[in-house]
Design a protein around this nucleic acid. Structure first.
Length: 843
RNA sequence: GGGCGAUUAGCUCAGUUGGUUAGAGCAUCUGCCUUACAAGCAGAGGGUCACAGGUUCGAGUCCUAUAUCGCCCACCA
């Protein structure tokens, strides 16, 4: 006998270990079953899993488990990401707390510390996966920095270099002065900052005139090598070709014309600092301007600025420069301004544009191929919801060369060696003396972009690769489409000639109850493992995956966690009832069925049909609702109540068992623990464990339309009866007389009115109750109030207006002609029913 | 500046290729310890689907415009 209440801790105990020991999560590359492969988005080894991860993996687990039950060779490949910059930052901090400096510690020892960190945090993450109950094939687990992935990375680098898709160049890049590394555009987050537009006086050489130059960054004036105006800007034409005097410094710089100078913006005069502004860098290229880098790698001022400013931070230098400008009358005015400033995604520091020699991936040809593939049905990545395809396409259209070198130690070291002016790029170090390997590592996303195939053995031609590439599906949040989805797509298509995955399911982000993002400063974070402790993994998984439509953000509300627990408790109790009544059942016999058995079987089949339709479209909220509605409303509220009057019958017991089994299977992907537990207690089962049994198949064999309608009608009658009883406060003293001769046994049982039946009208007030087919009168002592009369009148009016509407509709020849026949027929039937009801009411 | 999304019951959200009287959970009100479940059961109330037009026999759904909120992208010096 089951416990009276669902106890999630008891239910979950030992289950994951059981599944693992039976190798239920392992793929079989030798089987002839159709593959269904998902590679897990590898979490960073920097930390623990949060609610977003829980949602992400719950969705994937549902898909994997569903496909497995559907007969696929499901394969979910786990792994983690070394997260170059993120992990390095954590380890640097950890060492710093111990009083150790990274550079003094040395590269080898530092990397060893990173490996220690990885092992430690990897174990925590694996334990968390286990808590969530997810069906990962650990025998295939990978790490972005393991030997295989590292080989794949080197291979891509070398091949691309040879094809000219990777090059080394001196360009202006986003520099993180804290981590002291280059960043890609995607790693720069723009946020609004209160700043100012400073108008500076750049005097014309040998003249009393001056140019009003507006800038947000006065401290960069030391790097100015020109002042630009637009060639069509009449105001300044007379100055072009002359020199301007750089304030403070007193150096003469040329006044040039360039398209970058927009007459509409600011004063129309723009200072050009090629070394510290991406646009100015371009201007500098066009005009062959000198580049003066004025900052050190930590963004303090370097030896190229006047002595008094050297070693100051950017911020301090700005203050001082402004002070000095003001003193010299060179600051015209200060306009407050709010503008977007780039910050490092990882360290949060303001990004400094710097000219550095870095490695780049040439993006245009790669992106163009993706855009081509997206035009073809069997080549494109199918996004769910489809609108996210636009996000990828847009990125492909505007992307520019990807800066992939990072001045870090933790990561894939760039396979390039230098000897003087010579460069060697290869899988192995070059032969000969004097070669020095590039110190830098690659952007962590360079390796994760290879995840869908490098994890399967690429560049070797493995069985895994052959069977599971392209992956059938990828699941991730929309915020990493640019970082990851896009890059996997162009890499897969370039390197293997095929899209990396057929479907790409995109989910939203989880916010707090007020719709705010979770953040440390707000302290509104929720630990998924606290939720599991309180409500169970099944409840968390179900809630996260069914609360909102896929692709939209959700607001986390613990009240809903409770409601989900209640739902599972409801299932638990329904199972308790069924199991306690089918102990002696030896075989399921679905013949000699009563109408209510046929009714619930029909509803069940419809539920299966609907659920599968939604599952196949990744609409888990709809699938969940379909099962919920069937289970709670039809099975629990009605069928179990009906069954109580015929529990000794084999048809009842069989139906109870059959339908309960079906519900468990439908729910298994969402709630693997509780369904496994209840399934194991069934007297009759088709498999050792539920996850190895098949998913329900829709069968018309158990669709009984006329019985369905008949019992629907009886249910409607029951509801109407109860309604009238409740509204009129009728006690047990009433008598009931059926006007119809049909067998009303079910109704009598459900309403518990066996002792109230009469066969002749009584001399007291009678209330009529009816559905389409069943009619009865309730006799009871009651004085009809004005309110009762008004309610009845309202009901009559409602019917009348509905009848009028329908008659008008049906007399509209356009409608009858153009609307589908079944819709018209339905209206006709409804009209008839409404007319009958009205007659009953008026009578 | 460009793009995307949202706007439906008090709250959180569904609503499929346009087709019954727009649904659910929570909350509210009424009555019930009916032997699976009071974390439950039965019943009830609550929405001019943001706004204005249009297409259609028929619009929450499609088209156009507007408003508010959110997100993404973009070099605004």
């Amino acid at each position: 006998m089951l416990e009276k209440k669902y106890n999630h801790e008891e239910v979950e105990k030992g289950k994951y270990e059981k599944w693992l020991s039976k190798n239920y999560f392992q793929c079989d590359e030798n089987s002839s079953k159709k593959p269904f492969c998902i590679v897990l988005p590898p979490p960073n080894v920097t930390g623990v899993l949060h609610l977003g991860h829980a949602l992400d993996v719950a969705l994937q687990d549902i898909i994997i488990r569903y496909k497995k039950m559907e007969g696929y060779d499901s394969f979910w490949l786990p792994g983690m990401d070394h997260a170059a910059i993120a992990t390095e930052a954590k380890v640097v901090k950890k060492l710093k707390d111990q009083g150790i400096n990274k550079y003094e510690y040395g590269r080898d020892k530092f990397i060893e510390a990173c490996w220690d960190w990885t092992r430690e945090h990897g174990d925590v993450i694996r334990k968390q996966w286990a808590k969530l109950g997810i069906a990962l094939d650990y025998s295939k687990e990978r790490f972005t920095l393991d030997d295989g992935l590292s080989e794949a990375v080197r291979k891509v680098f070398v091949d691309y270099y040879q094809k000219g898709l990777i090059y080394r160049g001196e360009k202006i890049i986003n520099w993180d002065p804290v981590a002291q590394t280059a960043l890609s555009n995607e790693e720069v987050i723009y946020s609004e900052e209160k700043s100012a537009f400073y108008h500076l006086k750049y005097k014309i050489e040998n003249s009393e005139e001056y140019l009003d130059v507006a800038t947000t960054r006065p401290e960069t004036l030391f790097g100015d090598t020109a002042v630009a105006v637009n060639e069509n800007d009449k105001r300044y034409q007379k100055y072009v070709g002359k020199n301007a005097i750089l304030p403070i410094v007193g150096k003469a710089i040329p006044i040039i014309t360039d398209e970058h100078a927009d007459p509409e913006k600011g004063t129309g005069v723009v200072k050009i600092t090629p070394s510290h502004d991406p646009n100015d860098f371009e201007v500098g290229l066009r005009h062959n301007l000198e580049r003066i880098t004025i900052m050190n790698d930590d963004a303090t001022m370097n030896e190229n600025v006047p002595l008094k400013y050297q070693k100051m931070t950017r911020e301090k230098c700005r203050e001082e420069v402004l002070k000095d400008l003001e003193e010299n009358g060179l600051l015209i005015k200060v306009e407050p301004l709010v503008h977007e400033v780039g910050h490092s995604e990882r360290t949060g520091v303001m990004v400094e544009p710097m000219i550095k020699k870095q490695w780049f991936v040439k993006m245009r040809p790669l992106a163009d191929r993706v855009l081509d593939y997206q035009k073809e049905k069997d080549k494109k990545v199918n996004f769910v919801p489809s609108r996210y395809e636009k996000t990828m396409n847009h990125w492909m259209e505007i992307t520019y060369d990807w800066c992939i070198s990072r001045q870090l130690w933790w990561g894939h070291r760039i396979p390039a060696w230098y000897r003087g002016e010579e460069i060697y790029v290869g899988m192995e170090p070059p032969k000969g003396e004097g070669w020095v390997q590039d110190e830098d590592v690659l952007d962590t996303w360079f390796s994760s972009a290879l995840w869908p195939f490098a994890t399967l053995g690429w560049p070797s031609n493995t069985k895994l690769l052959e069977k599971y590439y392209p992956n059938q599906c990828l699941v991730t949040a929309y915020d990493i489409i640019p970082f990851w989805v896009n890059r996997m797509t162009f890499q897969g298509e370039e390197l293997l000639g095929k899209r990396p995955f057929e479907d790409c399911v995109i989910h939203g982000l989880i916010r707090d109850k007020q719709g705010r993002k979770f953040s440390k400063s707000l302290g509104n974070g929720i630990d998924p493992f606290d939720m599991i402790k309180e409500y169970g993994a099944d409840a968390l998984r179900y809630y996260l995956t069914t609360d909102v439509a896929i692709g939209t953000d959700m607001r986390f509300d613990e009240e809903k966690m409770k409601a989900t627990w209640n739902y599972i408790n409801k299932i638990w109790n329904a199972a308790r009832f069924v199991l306690s009544n089918i102990e002696d059942l030896k075989e399921i016999h679905l013949d000699h069925l009563k109408p209510e058995d046929k009714w619930i079987l029909t509803k069940y089949e419809r539920c299966v049909h609907e659920t599968k339709k939604f599952m196949d479209k990744y609409q888990f909220n709809n699938a969940g609702n379909a099962i919920y509605d069937f289970t709670w409303s039809y099975f629990c509220d009605h069928y179990i109540e009906m069954a109580k009057y015929s529990l000794d019958q084999i048809s009842t017991q069989s139906t109870l068992c059959y339908v309960l089994t079906g519900i468990l299977k439908l729910l298994q992907p969402f709630m693997p623990y509780v369904t496994d537990e209840i399934y194991s207690m069934l007297p009759i089962k088709d498999s050792e464990d539920i996850m190895m049994s098949g998913y329900p198949k829709y069968s018309k064999k158990y669709i009984f339309e006329s019985d369905e309608k008949a019992v629907d009608d009886q249910v409607e009658f029951i509801k109407n009866f109860r309604n009238i009883k409740a509204e009129n406060n009728i006690t047990k003293d009433m008598k009931v007389m059926f006007d119809t001769d049909d067998d009303n046994e079910l109704i009598v049982n459900m309403l518990k009115i066996r002792d109230n039946i009469v066969h002749k009208p009584l001399g007291m007030k009678a209330y009529k109750v009816f559905s389409t087919r069943v009619k009865a009168q309730i006799f009871f002592e009651k004085i009809e109030t004005e309110a009762d009369k008004a309610a009845k009148e309202a009901q009559i009016q409602l019917l009348k207006s509905s009848i009028e509407r329908r008659e008008k509709l049906l007399s509209n020849s356009n409608y009858v002609k153009k609307a589908p026949k079944n819709i018209v027929e339905m209206d006709r039937q409804k009209l008839e029913e409404e007319k009958k009801k009205l007659e009953e009411l008026l009578h």
